[in-house]
């Protein structure tokens, strides 16, 4: 590891200014569970860490029925899955946040960090996508929001401009009859990067799927929102046929690579398997 400067930003504006002045070598430090590892292994040139955890807005978790849920970008996983509202209304966030790392990592790792690290295999992002999260961004030119499915642009890259960072993630209140589920496949039962992951949210009204979102990860340069999979479900009662069609849409959308974590064939197949399983389990939650 090289010598790195560390500054604890007291406000959104200060953080933004430090990031802009610091240029390429400046990085936001949230939980540090990605970025400190990268600095140690010298896979990223870093000379300044801007710690955002002193900024209240980046750490808070708040909910009201009209505005929905807001999760500070740096709020650690254990606070997210420990939050009563999240457990009740957004159980798919519990799915994601309780399997990122282990207990120790979850004490630090944040959803903002998971998103901004922008790994194609990130276990938070498919869930954010199916929950229709928006990314609240602050920067030198003020604030803006971006739909989460438009946030990542390539492995390790996203839409943030110089001096910008993510302040929070906002989620609409799930409509009645909704259910969502996230699953990942790893060869072991813990400590792995997803070979493939997937999330689904469905809304079931009068016995028929009225709305759906399906997202798959680790099968393309960025986590994918699979519109065709949702289209295969919407407007019909859930059946083996519609689920199989959705799974086929996910397989078709997947354009995976072959690497030490999985083969092309394996990942494409798993995109279908996990699509099917998340749909069935999301529907169970919708019914509950």
């Amino acid at each position: 590891m090289q010598a790195v400067k560390y500054v604890r930003a007291a406000s959104v504006d200060e953080a933004s200014r430090l990031l802009q002045e610091g240029g390429e070598g400046a990085r936001v430090l949230a939980g540090g569970t990605d970025v400190i590892v990268q600095a140690r292994e010298r896979t990223r040139e870093i000379d300044l860490f801007v710690d955002i955890k002193q900024i209240a807005e980046t750490m808070s978790i708040a909910y009201d029925a009209a505005d929905g849920l807001s999760i500070g970008a740096a709020a650690p996983c254990h606070e997210i899955y420990g939050n009563e509202t999240v457990r009740e209304l957004y159980p798919s966030l519990v799915d994601s946040t309780s399997l990122i790392g282990g207990t120790a990592i979850q004490g630090r790792a944040s959803l903002g960090g998971n998103l901004c690290n922008s790994s194609p295999a990130a276990d938070g992002i498919p869930t954010l996508i199916v929950l229709e999260a928006t990314v609240e961004i602050a920067g030198p030119n003020g604030r803006r929001s971006v739909a989460v499915e438009d946030f990542c642009t390539a492995p390790g890259r996203n839409v943030l401009e110089s001096g910008e960072f993510v302040v929070s993630l906002k989620f609409p209140t799930p409509a009645a009859g909704s259910g969502a589920r996230f699953l990942r496949f790893i060869p072991r039962n813990e400590m792995d990067i997803a070979v493939t992951n997937a999330a689904t949210q469905v809304r079931i009204e009068n016995g028929s799927v009225s709305w759906a979102r399906v997202s798959i990860g680790a099968v393309a340069p960025i986590p994918l929102l699979v519109a065709d999979a949702a289209a295969a479900l919407v407007g019909q009662p859930l059946s083996d046929e519609t689920i199989a069609a959705a799974a086929a849409a996910s397989r078709a959308a997947a354009s995976p690579i072959d690497d030490m974590r999985g083969s092309i064939r394996q990942r494409r197949h798993l995109a279908g398997v996990l699509t099917e399983r998340t749909i069935r389990q999301a529907a169970e939650r919708a019914a509950a």
Partner: peptide, 23 residues
């Protein structure tokens, strides 16, 4: 796990998958 150039692609305990207590 080697690639064709002889680069070991899984030289970490993340990707060199020994069983954990949960396995």
């Amino acid at each position: 796990y080697y690639d064709e150039s002889g680069d070991l692609k899984n030289a970490s305990l993340l990707d060199y998958r020994m069983p954990t207590a949960l396995d």
